[in-house]
């Protein structure tokens, strides 16, 4: 009886619209149970939609409350969390937004990368001194362990300037982002989040490094995209912003 009850009630709690009262729950018949069930349904759906609003605050401002709310409730009903960790809930939301609003979806991808970076594991940061301790002959064969917070994004809209301004001014409503390819590195040096706008080719090279490829392979991946890619400047950025945890040959 318990298992059937839980399956019935879960179906009712994730149902769309005003709900069908207690219909379908054997242990909750009648008008009172039907009305009271709506309290639980509202608690479940609204609290999960609020969790998405917390994870995607700039996307919410970009879309406006009504459009975001509709999209969030649809997502909650179709994809409730699969574990009791709200900080990990919403990874699929950007993809769910893509058919509705590609600009908002890109903003959501950036915000999700920021969320993941914020809660990523702690790790030491590779220093310039540690790197220069390797003999120059080893450089080409170096492989890196990335800092767990480091993430590379390929975006189709210029959302990073809007995201930055939204951090400065919590009431500012961003305009629709321009369609423009952009590559962003998200990091967590010390306690804060840093988003770095990358020059062409750098995203491919950095992702290659984060995948554990050798420095030469990463250089090839970047130069394939952009022959003029400044590898030294890129490596400097990675070290300065704490993107790498350690190096080995």
């Amino acid at each position: 009886m318990l298992e059937a009850f839980q399956q019935q009630m879960q179906r009712a709690l994730l149902a769309a619209g005003g709900g069908e009262g207690g219909a379908g729950i054997d242990l909750a018949p009648g008008a009172v149970a039907g009305a009271r069930l709506k309290i639980y349904r509202a608690n479940v759906q609204q609290s999960l939609a609020e969790a998405l609003a917390t994870a995607f605050p700039v996307t919410l401002r970009l879309m406006g409350v009504p459009a975001f709310r509709t999209a969030a409730l649809d997502f909650v009903r179709a994809h409730p969390p699969t574990r009791p960790q709200l900080a990990a809930y919403g990874g699929g939301f950007p993809a769910a937004l893509a058919p509705l609003d590609t600009g908002a979806a890109d903003m959501a991808r950036l915000e999700w990368a920021v969320m993941e970076a914020y809660f990523a594991a702690d790790a030491p940061v590779l220093t310039v001194e540690q790197l220069t301790a390797f003999p120059p002959g080893d450089y080409a064969r170096l492989r890196f362990i990335p800092h767990p917070a480091a993430r590379v994004l390929w975006l189709g809209h210029d959302v990073l300037p809007l995201w930055r301004q939204a951090q400065e001014d919590e009431t500012w409503v961003p305009p629709a982002p321009d369609a423009a390819d952009g590559e962003v590195l998200v990091l967590r040096p010390a306690d804060g989040i840093v988003c770095v706008s990358l020059p062409p080719g750098a995203a491919a090279a950095i992702q290659s490094l984060l995948n554990g490829d050798m420095l030469t392979q990463a250089a090839e991946a970047g130069l394939l995209v952009e022959p003029k890619l400044d590898l030294q400047a890129m490596l400097h950025t990675l070290l300065a912003q704490g993107a790498l945890a350690s190096a080995s040959v």
Binding site: L2, Q10, L13, N43, V44, P80, T82, R83, P84
Partner: peptide
């Protein structure tokens, strides 16, 4: 929640 879902609410038991 059941079936691997987490509904973010403390739900009643018979």
């Amino acid at each position: 929640g059941t079936g691997g879902a987490y509904l973010n609410d403390l739900l009643p038991l018979p």
